[in-house]
Structures are given as structure tokens and as C-alpha cells.
Design a protein around this nucleic acid. Structure first.
Lengths: 128, 128
DNA sequence: CTTATCTTTCAATTATCATTGAAGTATTAC
DNA sequence: GTAATACTTCAATGATAATTGAAAGATAAG
């Protein structure tokens, strides 16, 4: 992870509303939440949520997919892993033990879970 | 760690110059660097460095102490640990394995080492 | 085809942050 | 005491980011 990406990721988490969104999505797990549900959960205007999740996605912390009329967002665990790896390995100058941290082996499973969620479809906000 | 502190810590790392400073200080280890040396290393004006390190210290990522005419700054490993713990435990919704991470034992007594390293004058010459 | 729903994009406003240079504080040397 | 050094604080400017509401894009239903 290059420094520029890391800065983007830190910035993405350095805002009250985005951190709230991030935690909601962590709770929601790989099946994610629709943009509308995120807006309701966070008490924000839809356009504002769009602005924030776009920034988080650009930073590699979220990914998104469309389900009928909804766009779902979920945490990209790979991205979170990359950020933590950067912080512990690069930032901590090769001495992650300084920070009392140990990063487990490479990432991998996040993407498949989300696609499973995509297959699950509807259910959420798409009820009409 | 409360959300507000975490936001401050993320923000502290979410800037090119501050991340550069942070990495320099990580490399420098517990003996830290003087504000002037940080300015030279980062190629920044002294007042600008003051501004940045103050923010990082407020965020709990650095600590400072005076040695003669110099003010030294070093990474507060406890603070980094707190941030990483927040990210893995609180943010990751109690499922840190989602992020492929494992945080080692609790934080505690990192404060003494650096003071010993610099001949310890004032305990806390912070800019606030 | 028309309408409804969900979301994004755009433009404008407001708010916050970063940088600069000058002035001020603390410490040491003479 | 005065002068020098090291850093911080202040005030002003310039640069980014966040929020809002209106308009537009995409998808689905009638």
C-alpha cells in the first residue's frame, strides 16, 4: 500500500459520519446495507451519504454492488487489512511489536461472501 | 478509546506531512527527535511542524519533553496501540478476524522508556 | 410510454484545515 | 543584565472538505 492510499484510508475514517457508516457496515457484515438504509441509520441526507461512501470506496475501505434499484455497500475487509498492514509494517518501521500488534496472514475471503449476499437479493430495501 | 479520540488519531495520520513526521519518529524510536530536526527532515517550516505535532500529540499519537532548549517528540506506542485496538475491536464489531488482525496484550507502561533515553527533564511540556 | 423509486451528480454555500511570516515565550550563553 | 537559540502562538491568507437542495441517471412497475 502506498502512502497516498493510506492517507486516503485514514482520511476516510477521520470523520464522525463516515466512522458511523463504517461501523454500521461492519455490523451489517458481508451482506452490506443499501445507501438508503445507511442514510436512515446515520440520520443523513442521501446525497451526503453518497458523498461519504464514495470517498470510503475510493479509499478502498468499501465496495458496492447493485441489487435491483438499490446500491449496497459493505466493508472491504481486504482494504481494512491493507490499512492495518501499512500501519503496523510500514509505519511502525518494521517493528510492529512496538505497537503491540500482530497482523495475521494475507487476506482473501471477503469478496466471495459479498457475492453470496448479492445472490440473496431483494429482501432488504427492495420490497414493494 | 472513544470515537472522538479515534477520529482525531485517524485525522492525525491522514495528512502527507504528518504521516511523514510519524514515520520519521517511528524510525527514530523512543529517543525521538527535536522539533527542529523534524522540520529539517520533513522540509517544513518550524511553525508548520509545531502545528502538526501539536495535533498529533493532542490525538495521543506522540508525546513530548524538553531537553535544554529543544523539545523532543516521539511516538506514543500506547496511543498507536489504542488506535489499532479501536479499529480491530470496536470498529470491526467484535470480529477482528474479519480484518485478519490480532492485537497483542493490553497497553500499559510505555511512557518511561523515552524519558530515560533523553535524560528526562520536565515530565510533560506539551503544547496544550 | 409514463411514473415511481433509489441513488448519484452538480452547483452553491458554509465550515474546517494548512501554510506563512511575524511576534512572543522559554531556555541558555555571555 | 543583553543576546542568541529553539520552539510556539497568533493572525491572515489560501486551499479543501462537508452539507444542502435541485436536477439528472438508472432501474423497475403499471
Amino acid at each position: 500500500m502506498v502512502e497516498e492510499q493510506a492517507i486516503g484510508a485514514f482520511a476516510a475514517l477521520a470523520h464522525e459520519n463516515r466512522l458511523t457508516i463504517f461501523r454500521s457496515l461492519m455490523r451489517a457484515g458481508p451482506s452490506g446495507m443499501s445507501a438508503g438504509d445507511i442514510a436512515v441509520a446515520a440520520g443523513l441526507a442521501p446525497s451526503n451519504v453518497s458523498f461519504h461512501v464514495a470517498q470510503m470506496e475510493r479509499a478502498g475501505l468499501l465496495r458496492s454492488w447493485r441489487v435491483r434499484r438499490n446500491i449496497f455497500y459493505a466493508v472491504d475487509t481486504d482494504g481494512v487489512h491493507r490499512l492495518l498492514t501499512f500501519l503496523t509494517e510500514e509505519c511502525c518501521a518494521g517493528h510492529p511489536e512496538l505497537c503491540g500488534l500482530h497482523v495475521a496472514g494475507a487476506s482473501g475471503g471477503g469478496r466471495g461472501a459479498a457475492q453470496a449476499a448479492e445472490g440473496k437479493l431483494t429482501g432488504d430495501t427492495a420490497a414493494e
